[in-house]
């Protein structure tokens, strides 16, 4: 558990509060004043309680350049997800099951836990790969059709398009 300064804590608290309050508004889908007040109170209590656990970043994440890269990442991710699904569909439907599975590893340049979590989740949803474990900065990836066992080349094929964008955000 890292120690945080007061400013970091305040930034995380405000970000978390706004996010949870938005979720509440989406969930109740109404602007009736009693619902809104209760939602604000409950989301404030929750974000106070979870300041050290579930928060990722301070208010500096709201910089417009970073928000642009976040939207860009969303499109990169959706494209990879659709490609992955057609890839899986092709493999499942083909009667001979064209697979050559194995586990490869590579190292990442990302440092914070949250960005590593985002990268691992994205890798799971992209063509033919499933993240088995993350130890420090080493990713162990189950690959349904192994093209190379060399860490550098595997990194280039699997993770480079995501990491390029994530390094600009976090």
């Amino acid at each position: 558990m890292q120690s945080l300064t007061f400013n970091q804590k305040l930034g995380r608290f405000i970000l978390n509060w706004v996010f949870l309050f938005l979720v509440w508004l989406m969930f109740t889908s109404t602007f009736f004043w009693q619902e809104v007040i209760i939602g604000a109170a409950v989301s404030m209590l929750l974000s106070l309680a979870s300041i050290r656990l579930f928060t990722c970043c301070t208010l500096s994440i709201l910089n417009p350049v970073k928000i642009f890269w976040m939207i860009w990442y969303f499109f990169v991710f959706i494209k990879a997800l659709i490609v992955a699904n057609f890839d899986v569909a092709r493999r499942v439907i083909t009667p001979s099951l064209p697979i050559n599975p194995g586990i490869v590893k590579f190292k990442t340049k990302l440092t914070t836990n949250y960005s590593k979590m985002v990268l691992a989740n994205s890798i799971t949803l992209t063509p033919g790969t499933l993240s088995v474990d993350v130890i420090g900065d080493t990713f162990y990836i189950h690959w349904i059709d192994v093209e190379t066992t060399d860490p550098e080349e595997a990194f280039k094929i699997i993770a480079e398009p995501f990491e390029k964008v994530l390094l600009k955000i976090f």
């Binding site: 997800l81 499942v92 949803l125």
Partner: peptide, 8 residues
């Protein structure tokens, strides 16, 4: 199985 199940 996890690969096929999760993505699809």
């Amino acid at each position: 199985r996890l690969q096929a199940g999760t993505k699809a």
